[in-house]
Design a protein around this nucleic acid. Sequence first.
DNA 1: AATGCGGGGAA
DNA 2: TTCCCAGCATT
Length: 416
Amino acid sequence: MANDVANDIVEEHSLSSLLLAWFTLEKRDLPWRRTGDPYAIWVSEVMLQQTQVKTVIPYYEQFLQRFPSVVQLATASLEDVLTVWSGLGYYSRARRMWEGARYMCDQRGGKMPQDYDSLLLVPGIGKYTAGAIASIAFGQRVAAIDGNVLRVVSRLLAWPEPVETVRSHRHFGELLGKWQPAVQPGDFNQALMELGAMICTPKNPDCGGCPLAFVCEGYLQDDVFLYPVKKPKSQRQVVTRLTFVLRRGDQVYLQKRPSHGLLADLWEFPGVELSQGNDLKESILNISGDNGFGFFQKTVSERMFDELVREQFERGITLHGPVWYTFSHRRWKIIWAIFDFPDLDNPRNLPELLERPESKPEGVSAPRESVGEYRLDSRKDHQLEDHCWVTLQDLTGLPLPVAFTAIVDDLKTSEE
DNA sequence: AATGCGGGGAA
DNA sequence: TTCCCAGCATT
């Protein structure tokens, strides 16, 4: 019975000592375990959302080097923050951290909130992250329930319901609230997560090495693999994306994506999502001639080369690819057309080249109010340009999604 | 409660 | 391939 186990665990005080002893002995030496700086711990917790430790480490080091404190993050441009973040995914995390730093500067004198309830008010900090920071950095006795903890506890209790429900979450929270010691609440939370990452893994749990196996109902019933119970996930939809690669000498053309939705505020080769279900052949049919040029006009801001592009569409374009790219909820079949233009030795970024017939609010970074003294008045912070020409080498200085690296590689190899 | 939001590691 | 990862915000 799950309740009996729960009571046993609560009553068995030595159980948490057992877990903590294991943690003290076996814990990995991770960068964020060498600091007590709440800011650094905040950075680590946000990066670790839905992201494995191994992936995070290099980003963590770079980020702290570039933005060592709340104030330095708050006074940076979003563009710079996204550039350091690029490749890590879930880019709204970076934007919200940046907003969170500004919130701390504007409302809290540049200091981190020091308790669970105040941390919850910060953009990008939810229940898990608030609990993690409050317990690890400030020693508050609050739970931090992540995917690891859900797996560990569900196996411990042989919990028969889906773990994503409010009911499960509340039940686990109450249990952990009683179980968590007052002395090292942060270590207790980390120990549970570490156990989930190292021992109680999804596929090959090492129950033989688990300090809690002797009270684990899942293990005792030989049913570890039944848990955690999960609801079925919705399917990924497949979308064909026609991408326009404009090339002028050694430079390529990029546009900035809208501030909301997929890959928000990142740069990309402009493109359109063709209606779902078109196979490649059908797409070629649809995008030749005026139809394709229409796509181009609607998608690409740059108007200088319209005539050249129209000619090329009439002659018939060559499609490259496809390459596949998978997001968490969508799959792109990427095909691309390359347009080469004469490299007139125009000065870069002439204002008249950047002027656009009509304004497109979505493409411009959203205007912010009351950012106060921390507003950075650099060009980037309120840049009106939503497009630019850059060399392939300079791409590393911009936040470019990994989805386009295949195209970049193709351009680099075909360049020689 | 369901959905949108990246990228990579591991089996 | 599939699953899952130190989740959050919006609807």
